[in-house]
Amino acid sequence: MAVAPMDTIAPVQRPRHRTVSGGRRSRINGHLLRLPFYLLSLTMIAPFYWLLITVFKPPTELARTPPSFVPQSPTFANFYDPEWTAEGVNPGHLQGIFQRYQVDFGFWRFLFNSLVITTTITVVSLLICSLAAYVIAKHDIKGRRTIFLLIIASMMVPWQTTLIPNYVIMRNLGWLDSYAAYIIPALAKAFVLFFLVQFLQSIPNELIQAARVDGAGEWRIWWKIVLPLLRPALAAMSIFIVLAEWNNFLWPLIIVQSDEMANLPVALARLNSYFAGPDHQGAIMAGGLIASVPTIVFFLIFQKYFTRGIALSGLKG
């Protein structure tokens, strides 16, 4: 989103009548006022830098004090160490992140699980929510007001309140430890529906009416007209859903029993509870890095939509 270049601390667009020296002074003042925030940005970068260098240090270097701030002997061993042997006869070598899990395909399996779960929930929930939003916003049916009020009210329910009954439902259905338990309870998203209804209400009815006159069925109108109209809203919502589902932890922690069905957060949490030593941090951070790359790439590609989506949800609501 094009943000107006406006600044109250140090005006970016200074009035023309100001002298050059006055301008420079105010620019220096601006930098001085910003100094604490520049310093604050160091506290943002430092932990990330620490994570990154950890990933490329061998286990022996990780256990050394004081720690090195540039990896002395950079290595990819924290991802995969060909010299590691199961008997532990090769001191100084630990399993890389891709060697650590006793499941088929190792760490790839969790990456796959997270990708499948996140993509499915995002696509299917947007379809389901947009269908319902279309009816609530544009169809004159009985009870739509009641239904919408109920959905709005449900937005005030912290999802943890339904955690225990939903766990019992999953158990009774025999869905524990399955993709179904990840995906199906996560599809009806009240916030998404609410947002889409609001968005649709701001769109005039003419297009839809014209299509009806032309004899298009409701399903066709939804697919051919409503979905394209909703595109900016769907983009904004998909960002929220992707981030939330990619990071989902408490629900998977409860429904996942086997190693195979863990998503990335649960797999990493398990690794964390098994290995506490500094020499293991390289592999753990490597796992964290891999888990972060997809969302960071997603962000860099759709950066524009991110800020717009956040702003839209915050300002419209």
Partner: peptide, 12 residues
């Protein structure tokens, strides 16, 4: 941090 895996941040 908003687009980094939250578990990765906790482990960090």
């Amino acid at each position: 941090p908003s687009v980094t895996s939250s578990i990765a941040l906790m482990l960090m």
